[in-house]
Design a protein around this nucleic acid. Sequence first.
RNA 1: CGGAGCGUAGCUCAGCCUGGUAGAGCACUUGGUUUGGGACCAAGACGUCGCAGGUUCGAUUCCUGUCGCUCCGACCA
Length: 570
Amino acid sequence: MKWTQTLIPTLREAPNDAEIASHKLLLRAGLIRKLAGGVYTFLPLGLRTLRKVEQIIREEMDRAGAVEVLMPALQPKEIWEQSGRAETASNVLFKVKDGSNREWFLSPTAEEVITTLAAGEINSYRQLPKNFYQISTKFRDEIRPRFGLMRAKEFIMKDAYSFDTTDENAMAAYKKMYDAYTRIFARCGLKAFPVEADTGVIGGNYSHEFMVPAETGENDVAYCEACGYAANIEKATSGIPKTAAREVGPAVEKFATPGVVKIEALSKEPYKVAANRQIKTLVYIADSKPIIILIRGDDQLNETKLIAKTGAVAVRPATVEEIVPLLGAKPGSLGAVANVPADVKVYADERLQGANDMTTGANEDGFHFKHVSIERDIKVSAWFDLRTVTAGEPCGKCGKPLKIRRAIEVGHVFKLGTKYSEKLNATFLDVDGSRKPAVMGCYGIGVTRTLQAVIEQGNDKDGIIWPLSVAPYQVCITPLSVAPESEAMKLAEKFYAELMAKDVDVILDDRDERPGVKFKDSELVGFPIRIGLGEKSLAKGEVEIKPRNGAMQAVRTEDAVAVVMALVKA
RNA sequence: CGGAGCGUAGCUCAGCCUGGUAGAGCACUUGGUUUGGGACCAAGACGUCGCAGGUUCGAUUCCUGUCGCUCCGACCA
């Protein structure tokens, strides 16, 4: 490609609506342009890198035995009602109506469609296993699009769906995808690592996310360097000990704590109750019913765990207006010892199991109870792991301290089980003649997000540093003179033709610009290899080969193509 | 949806506080001089100051509303 022929609108300064490095560089290097918040046009260069990421994904999916299909973005509402997600995923669905007032959803994912397809086309165990994938535009009504392609309303996702006869076979399919994902991200030059994950609205009971470490990521990951344990903070557990038991104290005793509404205040003079001897009482509304959550004073509730453990569709903290009539006191004096309505469930964090001599609110403004033995004095409906792991806690597997870091989620694999196949009748006849629901898995990669993650991980003050595998062009030829009869340009054209003949993606910067402009732009866009052709080196019979991330080397003109080929193959 | 901030030329921003009809740098066009790390000179083109209403003789400027964008939070497959 000749530079003047395509459109590469580089910017000297970043538009002020970009915050993070990768977003700024996507705009500055002329890869994308914003049409509206969370909605972007891919310019020629951006599209080329996107296609390269897609191609890597295709190759690895095909290698893992998946077959490509393409499902509609426009999906009838009915199948979403059948799966139950018309309600549970309602807040992210883009809904449209056609001329006859029929309602459609723009595909945020395609479990319903693929399962409907399988229901019609797969009838026998002989047709299984199958794994279908597609790479297509997805729509999600994100409440808050962010950071360019990182969280967009419209984006490109690879989604795959496996169908198997048994749970065991489904696990094998899961493992194949897990391995394929590992290869895909490695080929994109990304340092991605798998972590245990919550399954969220997709459902299922087993899942991993593939994470790229980055401070700008939207996820916290807890991990252990010693044994390799890694989990999304929403799911992570640790080996932290339960609350230490004390001598069983006397009966519960109420004491006055005027104006004390915070754990911290109660831990100070004159009360001096350490946070780890307090029970924090929270009221949530789970699917419109109030529930009480008990967490140790020095712990934080993990809402994702709460949803997962209680099976609720939606939870939110109760408002003061809801709490006072329920428990008779305002937040700050709440507890589960007295005045708890019988029909309100009390869920307690496992760390409190067996705890005694604790202090908690008395459900009377300005009073607390002390000497509370949780199992003696509180009617706990169920014990769950509900707390959020913090850095430094002992790893649940090996006991070494856990660390926490930010990361970008680029892929997610789920073992779904039969949730969708049962609801949408994707059944098959097994060897023994019995009809069974197919055991499913689903597997997503945020293609556009992966693209941005590559930039987030590979950049410096001058611009993007592309890995060869996904660079829009692998080689940029930069003649400092573009006059057709100049030696630099003639040689540039020669290299250009030779490299193209060898299937190298090459761009010739034929702009009549000053050298500084061309060098800066080639570094901003981040082509992995630049061939510089200028009078000074040509006079010595040399050209300059500059890897984007390495030192310039002077090379004999006649060796240049061979040297570039060696770098490209490396 | 709650909190904060911002909307002025393609981009980055000044002007607004203290009202008098709009500016700079970069980019763009033409000509010239330059030519190995984002050149220089000259001339030029580019604006419904987000939109609507109000106050005023007069509003980019003050007030109200509204839309859009960004960040934090909530949410998130």
